[in-house]
């Protein structure tokens, strides 16, 4: 399992390859790898120049590890990778990445969705949209984010 909380960009291809290589090195015999990459979406009217992501150093790693441990316990996974960035990001840049590996694809897909649902509302990150005119808007959590967790209850 690898958890990375970082401000720098990451290379999706490199991370995917390293994840896959780690599986074959460990003899995990995984038949499925699922990766998900979250990307900064621009605002509909194009006035968002950047997204500032704040986090709670210490708790962030701890919360993500807890979520990943829970995924490992619920599904039969060979490995889990979570990378989440913070700091100032521009539209089109990747924010985060999740990779899961399992013997068959169902577990890897479900676990990746579980990780995404929990990272959204249980990992201490806060997004602020920075607009052209200098204003900043904190992104509000949606009811649907919380409801998404019910599915895993």
């Amino acid at each position: 399992m690898r958890i990375a909380v970082q401000d720098g960009l990451f290379d999706i291809g490199e991370e995917s390859n390293r994840f896959a290589a780690g599986l074959s090195d460990s003899g995990a015999n995984a038949g499925a790898i699922v990766t998900f990459t979250g990307v900064v979406r621009g605002s509909d009217n194009g006035d968002m120049v950047a997204m500032e992501i704040e986090h709670y150093p210490g708790m962030t790693e701890r919360a993500i590890r807890k979520i990943a441990d829970e995924a490992m316990a619920r599904w039969s996974l060979a490995d889990v990778l979570v990378i989440h960035r913070h700091g100032r990001l521009v539209p089109g840049e990747q924010i985060m990445m999740v990779a899961t590996a399992s013997r068959h694809r169902l577990h890897a897909f479900e676990a990746a969705e579980f990780l995404m649902d929990y990272l959204k509302s249980r990992a201490p990150f806060w997004k602020k949209e920075l607009l052209q005119d200098g204003a900043g808007n904190w992104v509000e959590a949606k009811d649907s984010d919380e409801e998404a967790l019910d599915r895993w209850a």
């Binding site: 990272l119 959204k120 509302s121 990150f125 806060w126 997004k127 992104v139 509000e140 984010d145």
Partner: peptide
């Protein structure tokens, strides 16, 4: 103390 989280 913080508002509801918006990660992902």
């Amino acid at each position: 103390f913080f508002p509801p989280m918006t990660g992902g």
